[in-house]
Design a protein around this nucleic acid. Structure first.
Lengths: 217, 217, 217, 217
DNA sequence: CATGAATGAGCTTTCATTCAT
DNA sequence: TATGAATGAAAGCTCATTCAT
């Protein structure tokens, strides 16, 4: 079967990817407010004007990162279900905690950027595009939840879907609120135990007991 | 002992309060990036230059709001302990959940602003001032935790102090990550159950099971 | 004699016409500075790049509109002479006033665009093209003037040719300078009689007494 | 009597004047569209940002030039009435023609800029400011007209006020529409008599016969 | 000849910050 | 200490123009 490639579509896809990647890289290095379109253009090796052919503005780029990043995460999760051999509630819990560890390790930036949505991103990002993305996310989460409840008896779809929101909230909250002993990535010479938090440990702990509760284990 | 009032000190205090209040009001109306020093000055009814006598920059103001707002919350909590008549773990849990409801209802904005700390505030805010504030917060939380463990047997100070971090993280995370069906304060015409969240219900639920866990109830 | 139609020539003509028409439409809706090549391309249903095959730049398009529009007007006038049955000075005056009414009613936009020539059009438009157009205009006016003086005794060709310049100047001037009670097409709630002007009445009045003068009536 | 000078008011006035003057100079050298705010700032020796403290945008500056320039002209005219010793219709006509010569010689640029009002200035200039200016103009013209009709019997105020509109229209029209043998300030090597116009001669001629008509001379 | 994605110079405008008063 | 006019760096963004397809 011959593969029909739409060249211009492919090129456009590549460009948006390059721009998003450049912006993603920068947010790991520089505070959001200090990132400029010029920086993003330089990093992505495209002209500044090109960015505006693909994104409405800076906020739009980061909103796209949020959505695509999270989609990437949950699509991987969906694929992982097959290999996971989940049959009991315990399997399910283990699976979701493993996914949480993955989220902490590889998707913290994406989850963290979500913090900007209320104060910055939503105000300027493209409404339609964003909502479409969210619908895709919801549909994927829905599929995942359905697959999981089919594999494990006596579990509510609604509860599983909801758990993903809680999972993200927990990680986002810990990233923002914990570790107040760190200022601008530099640890402070002040002893404040119990403020310091190992995000992975804490996230899996909190989400673990949440799962226990909703799975009635 | 007669209290010597220093007039200029009082006036300065009033000014910082006016400026902070103006900024607080604005953040409930306008996205952070769109708030200008001119707006804050007008709202606070001071000259733009005056602001810079009291705050290093815009980020400094909002960092101060974070810290003072949270201090305000926990100082009220400290005062509330006396009236609360806490003697059992169950009392303790109820007290902390009541405090959580208060946090949701009256301090959501303060908790939400914390989302900006990593990406904006810390980068420009005054380091020393901020750390001093955090130390004050820690000291207050420490006093509170101690008072509580003295009232209730068999509870770890460390665990209680830590619980406050988790409490804030939960609220912050839910505010940021939940309710993705809302875009720019406008609800979307897309049905996505389990994404929609009643913050107060969810926060008390999650924090409740966390307390059950750490209090071993 | 059979006319050999050159297809590509016809197509090119059609294109320039489509582009000019699109630009003409736009200038009746949007201020010159706010009209973009993209808008013109969309309206003309051609690619942006195509425009540049036919016109040097934006100013060139509007210069072409000026020249072609005015040519259109005077070529119609030339054709109208035959039907007009002009034999006396009075006939001539009536003919020219009727033509002035036509100019006001159907060519105001063209005359108005001329206002841009000094400040915008000439600076960027194609010099040779423009001058060629003006020579064509002059030639046509010359033919018209000659036809008219042949029909009416005791009238100077030079004076008639010159009258057309005055005619255009009067209309252009009134369009620009009169009706200062209107701002951005919206009438102002300020009573300023004698500022308000019925362009057609005023133009024919002023041009009428001018004709009386040069025709020594 | 001590003169009370409001320093900040004076300084502001000086600034607006400097900025307007710079813009006026530039428009005599460079086409409107090519004048940038940077150029104006440099010429006026103020910071770019300063301009925006006094004017909304580029169009606003040129609208102010139009209005202030014309006001300057008619205020001089008002002052000139006293010295003029006007008692007859003939005196009145001579006075107005002399004023027209002055307009041609010293205010052509101002009158010419008016050509931009429809296509550029009004769309972006400050509405209120502009209308206020026009009201001032109208009031001055009204005073002038009244003074003149008091001096000369049997002349209609309305007609005189209206004549000023016609005067400006004539000059504006001639500046825009005549001399099509000149392209971009360079005369063309094409012989087109009757297109070439001596603006001053033509304007006084046309306005002269208009005055004859309305004064019934 | 038609296309439209890519370009990037350069625009207007903003706004934190300064500093003379 | 309060002021707010002045600053000017730098931002976001536009859009005429190019050019590979």
């Amino acid at each position: 079967m011959p593969r029909t490639t739409n060249n211009s579509y492919d090129r456009a896809n590549k460009r948006t990817f390059k721009i998003r990647s450049a912006a993603y890289e920068l947010i790991t290095e520089i505070p959001f407010a200090d990132i400029t379109m010029t920086m993003i253009a330089e990093r992505a090796q495209v002209a500044k004007g090109t960015i505006f052919n693909y994104f409405k503005n800076k906020e739009d780029i980061f909103m796209a990162i949020c959505i695509n990043g999270y989609l990437h995460y949950i699509e991987r999760m969906e694929a992982a279900i097959e290999q996971a051999q989940i049959t009991t509630k315990s399997d399910l819990k283990e699976f979701l905690l493993a996914q949480t560890r993955l989220q902490v390790r590889e998707y913290s930036v994406v989850i963290l950027i979500t913090s900007l949505r209320r104060f910055s991103l939503e105000v300027h990002a493209d409404r339609e595009q964003t909502l479409q993305g969210r619908v895709r996310i919801y549909a994927t989460l829905d599929r995942i939840a359905n697959k999981l409840v089919q594999a494990v008896p006596d579990v509510d779809v609604e509860a599983v879907r909801h758990a993903f929101i809680i999972q993200g909230s927990i990680l986002n909250g810990l990233l923002n609120f914990a570790n107040m002993n760190i200022f601008n990535n530099i640890e402070c010479p002040i002893e404040m135990p119990s403020v310091t938090v190992d995000i992975e440990v804490e996230a899996t702990h909190l989400f673990g007991i949440y799962l226990d509760d909703i799975l009635k284990m």
